[in-house]
């Protein structure tokens, strides 16, 4: 068994684990750390249900080895809220009914936060284009776009 030692900061906490080299970051988060908010929806790096932030950049955790994230700081959906206080993007998703089954939602919110960090006042077109790597089968994206618009605005405050 080819294993490797991995250390990283996840949602502000340092973790070190010995894992098989083939462990994907998403599996490290879900199976080794119990952070099941990050989901797997495809195997071709397209759906974005697994999106997390590595050192502030939004990435598909199903296409990154845990070993590649060694030494990095990872933020998952579980790391956005401060205690009971929702992150503005989370609050905007609820307010605008931007989720139905909820499965794509964590990845959508992580993408929304990343966009807002890049562009504080994204247009509808910019939001739709930025969502190229996130599939939602429930909402037709209409309310997701509205939520990200609102969430980005709220993040500016």
């Amino acid at each position: 068994m080819s294993s490797t030692s991995v250390s990283m900061t996840v949602n502000g906490k340092s973790v070190t684990k010995e894992v098989p080299a083939r462990t994907l970051l998403v599996s490290f988060l879900r199976d080794h750390l119990g952070l099941t908010g990050t989901h797997v929806g495809c195997d071709t790096s397209q759906c974005g249900a697994c999106n997390v932030h590595i050192d502030g950049k939004c990435v598909k955790s199903c296409t990154v080895l845990a070993a590649q994230a060694d030494g990095a700081s990872v933020t998952t959906i579980e790391g956005l809220a401060k205690g009971d206080q929702l992150h503005p993007m989370q609050a905007a998703f609820k307010e605008h009914h931007a989720l139905q089954c909820g499965f794509c939602t964590p990845g959508m919110i992580m993408t929304g936060v990343a966009l807002a960090n890049e562009k504080s006042n994204p247009s509808e077109t910019e939001i739709r284009e930025y969502l190229e790597g996130n599939f939602c089968r429930c909402t037709g994206y209409h309310n997701i776009v509205k939520a990200i618009e609102t969430g980005a605005k709220a993040m500016r405050r």
Binding site: S45, G48, V59, K60, T111, A114, E132, G133, N134
Partner: peptide, 9 residues
């Protein structure tokens, strides 16, 4: 190329 997440990697 790809999407924002792909472009980050």
């Amino acid at each position: 190329i790809g999407d924002p997440q792909v472009r980050n990697r």
